[in-house]
């Protein structure tokens, strides 16, 4: 119901508070556990003692309601797009998207597939891309470090961009999703 109103920009008085909050946001990234492609297999080692992503304050959450980060882990099939949009729009602001693998950037090895999206940015606002096929856990941690820095600097504004340019995203999404039945209320 707030789709038509662009989000308010914080005033000068709120800037310090926003900076402190951004520090907290960067050091407490909760990731929704939703494996969209083969890259999900490379996320598992991040939980283990070898890589231990919890030391950065990153934790997995089983529900999009509590998550800050949505990971698009590899190729995104046309059928999966609807579910991903649904998950993303159930997340509370501010929220971020990390896209893994070449498939999300240009289609990768599925560039000419009939059922795989090539450029993810046209459908959802991606904050950080991590290259590789598939990226190793070290690369994913590097991607998270980049996301954390962007959040601290106040540059991870994909969620605002999504709201401000909802018409653009909806138009692209509806080209792929022919049986459109997503609700309009969302956030």
């Amino acid at each position: 119901m707030y789709c038509n109103q662009p989000p308010e920009k914080p005033g000068n008085k709120k800037e310090l508070l926003e900076k402190i909050t951004n520090m907290a946001r960067a050091n407490s990234l909760w990731v929704t556990a939703y494996g969209t492609g083969c890259g999900a297999i490379e996320l598992r080692p991040l939980h283990t003692s070898r890589f231990d992503m919890e030391r950065f304050g990153i934790a997995m959450r089983p529900t999009p309601r509590q998550a800050d980060v949505l990971i698009i882990s590899g190729y995104l099939a046309t059928k999966t797009l609807k579910r991903v949009i649904r998950v993303y729009e159930q997340m509370q602001d501010p929220k971020y998207i990390v896209a893994l693998g070449s498939c999300t950037i240009n289609g990768g090895m599925y560039f000419d597939s009939y059922n795989t999206l090539n450029v993810l940015d046209k459908y959802l606002p991606v904050d950080v891309y991590v290259m590789g096929c598939m990226p190793r856990p070290e690369a994913i941690i590097d991607g998270f470090s980049l996301l954390m820095q962007k959040i601290k600097d106040g540059r991870a504004q994909g969620w605002k961009h999504y709201k401000e340019n909802l018409d653009y995203y909806r138009e692209n999404q509806k080209k792929i999703i022919t049986d459109w039945d997503l609700p309009d209320y969302n956030w």
Binding site: I20, T21, A24, R25, N27, S28, W30, T48, S49, D52, E54, R55, G57, D68, Q92, D93, P94, W187
Partner: peptide, 20 residues
């Protein structure tokens, strides 16, 4: 594992409090 910092719960709490 190394685990999170001991103040992690305070950080989580503040972040959650400031989410929409």
């Amino acid at each position: 594992r190394m685990g999170p910092r001991v103040t992690q719960n305070f950080i989580d709490l503040w972040k959650l409090f400031r989410k929409t």
